Amino acid sequence: MNQSIAHMALVVKDYDEAIEFYTKKLHFTLIEDTYQPEQDKRWVIVAPPNNSEKSIAPKTALLLARASSPLQESFIGNQAGGRVFMFLSTDDFWRDYNDMLSKDIKFKREPKVTDYGTVAVFEDLYGNLWDLVEFVPGHPFSLQ
């Protein structure tokens, strides 16, 4: 059996501001932005840069899904109930951490070295919490 998680839906307030944040501040690639007239919505897919074949799930991407009801709007920025929601793995923690600081990304927890790698918690444009993590070599999710 060969399976992977293809997309994770992330509820956003506005497609264009979310695309701007993920592509300009996090350097994600815009994979697709297609209007779906039958549902009056867009199919917007973004993915981290260099989403290589050697990673565990090389095609994992975010589906930026604009909230379409008051209930969905209530989850914008708090999709994981205040816990870290996403984990952005990197091959160079300090390069990306410093780049994110220069782009005014807000870090909620400062960098910390752990047995599994170097990690810090940041907020996306809506307040969802993310780990920026460089896993130690040999870790199953290490990009090195």
Rank of each mutant, 00 (worst) to 15 (best):
M1H: 06
Q3N: 05
Q3E: 04
Q3Y: 09
S4E: 08
S4P: 01
A6V: 02
H7E: 07
V11D: 01
V11P: 04
D16I: 09
A18T: 10
I19E: 06
I19A: 06
E20G: 00
E20D: 03
F21D: 04
T23L: 05
K24T: 12
K24Q: 11
L26K: 00
F28E: 13
E32V: 09
Q36V: 15
D40E: 15
W43F: 08
I45D: 04
N50F: 13
N51G: 15
I56N: 08
P58Y: 01
P58G: 09
P58K: 00
K59S: 06
K59M: 04
K59A: 07
T60W: 02
A61T: 02
L63F: 07
L63W: 07
R66A: 15
R66K: 15
A67D: 03
S68C: 04
S69E: 09
P70H: 01
L71D: 10
L71H: 07
Q72E: 12
E73H: 09
S74E: 10
F75W: 10
F75Q: 03
I76Q: 04
G77S: 05
Q79S: 09
A80K: 10
A80M: 13
G82E: 12
G82L: 09
F85H: 10
M86G: 14
L88R: 07
S89Y: 06
T90V: 12
T90K: 02
D91M: 06
F93C: 05
W94D: 14
R95C: 09
D96Y: 11
D96W: 12
D96S: 09
Y97R: 03
N98I: 04
N98K: 14
M100T: 11
L101H: 08
K103D: 12
K103L: 15
D104R: 14
I105S: 08
K106T: 15
K106W: 02
R109M: 09
T114S: 08
Y116M: 13
V119E: 08
A120V: 09
A120C: 07
V121K: 03
D124S: 08
D124T: 08
D124V: 05
L125Q: 10
G127P: 00
L129E: 13
W130C: 11
V133D: 00
F135T: 01
P137Q: 03
G138I: 13
H139V: 02
F141I: 05
